[in-house]
Design a protein around this nucleic acid. Structure first.
Lengths: 232, 232
DNA sequence: CGTAACGTTGAATCTAATCAACCCTAGTGG
DNA sequence: CCACTAGGGTTGATTAGATTCAACGTTACG
């Protein structure tokens, strides 16, 4: 990617919202570039946070391993998402592992550069607080959900959240444009593969969702899901 | 509080780490001051985020109401914690309600001032990312916990986390220096008053924790709790 | 075309919620 | 000063939602 191409990417990144074109160019010039093939990881949980990243193209799944070896899916990330920035600024090891679920192109800045750019362009730092704040909120919402709701409602809420974040309107409903396995969904909703399977099977019966193995999941009747997610 | 007194407070606030004394003074000068009596709220979930706050003295409990009327305790906050800053920068309504569980003194800055100060002193913005990032991590850890662990382990982890954040070493163990009801604990660990009660009763039997109604909870044998929290 | 990863489905089990009743304790007001 | 009450806590019995265990089906892909 040459510098103008990078600028085109960075223009749409929330972290750099409000920067002038010449400022974006300065930021772009400092970046390294990294490619990741499907199945590779960007870094591993526990590693030293030497770089912060912005995802240009592709998708990542952010996984956290628990001390006893289980896995929790923290979130899916798409183009424009920042990765690892918090760990860099906190000077702590990465707390999770981002796995490429599609081929990715990623821009990277060293830890020192990251801090320096934010100091030079405070707008970036303000944007970063807002972005990270958004994640706090999302996590608080998920926490509330898991704490108070039955499994069926959590699965419904999770699908709706993903649809809202990355969904595409197509004929026949809203499509979630990347492959999510039943197991992914289980690890996102704090339940088991089995329960997810049963639940989705029932919803397919009723025509609320559709999508065969491997292909993308489509929410055919979002309003029905909302009903399930909101019922007392 | 006069300006030098405020500076003394701000010196110990992570959000303002690394600022020079004259910079701190500038920040202190822009602050409003607000007192809160035990039982009052600083603001209410859903209100417009017009100010961001830093807790000078006292303790707050941050509550989130779920759509169906249940309550989740997000966290306890003590001196030096920032409150509401994220909502201000994201220009969204406050997502939770901070309730004073002790008398509090709080410093406040208007939304505009907050952004302006962070732009003028980028270090504040960088600190803010780090602080908020810390919350992201804590929430991710709690999410993992709730997602994968049995209730007993979650209660143990929660007590240990609180002890780590605000605990005081006293003879006979580590004391958590504010009143936590069984219900608070239930709302923090995604369980019911009843289960918490049973669990703590058992632990008191075994001499792992102690503390009668009203008085502070003391962890007499932290290592036993750690064992419970970590057992496969 | 074989095989491994993923998914489905049924049955048994169990954890923790719910339901229910009762007990303390700290205040309050007569 | 003491009875009363409200809020919080304890404890037992019952129930249900979801996990676990188990076995088998399906699909993608090398």
């Amino acid at each position: 990617m040459d510098i103008p191409a990078r600028v085109t990417v960075l223009e749409r990144v929330p972290l750099f919202k409000g920067l002038r074109p010449d400022e974006l160019e300065a930021v772009a010039r400092e970046a390294h570039e990294r490619k990741l093939e499907k199945g590779e990881v960007l870094f591993r949980q526990g590693e030293d946070a030497a770089h912060s990243y912005v995802l240009g193209w592709g998708r990542l799944r952010l996984d956290q391993a628990t001390p006893d070896g289980q896995n929790v899916v923290l979130r899916f990330m798409g183009p424009g998402d920042m990765v690892g920035t918090v760990a860099v600024l906190r000077r702590i090891p990465f707390p999770a592992t981002p796995l490429a679920i599609e081929d990715c192109v990623i821009l990277a800045w060293s830890a020192g550069r990251t801090a320096e750019l934010m100091t030079r362009f405070p707008a970036i730092a303000l944007n970063a607080v807002a972005v990270v704040g958004g994640r706090v909120e999302e996590l608080q919402a998920r926490l509330s959900e898991i704490a108070t709701q039955r499994v069926e409602r959590r699965i419904a809420s999770t699908l709706l959240r993903m649809a809202r974040q990355s969904g595409r309107r197509i004929e026949g409903g809203v499509e979630i444009p990347f492959a999510i396995s039943r197991n992914d969904l289980a690890e996102m909703t704090a339940t088991t593969l089995h329960t997810v399977s049963r639940t989705l099977a029932a919803w397919e019966q009723e025509g609320i969702v559709s999508g065969k193995r491997g292909s993308y999941l489509t929410i055919a009747q979002p309003h029905r899901l909302v009903e399930i997610a909101e019922q007392a």
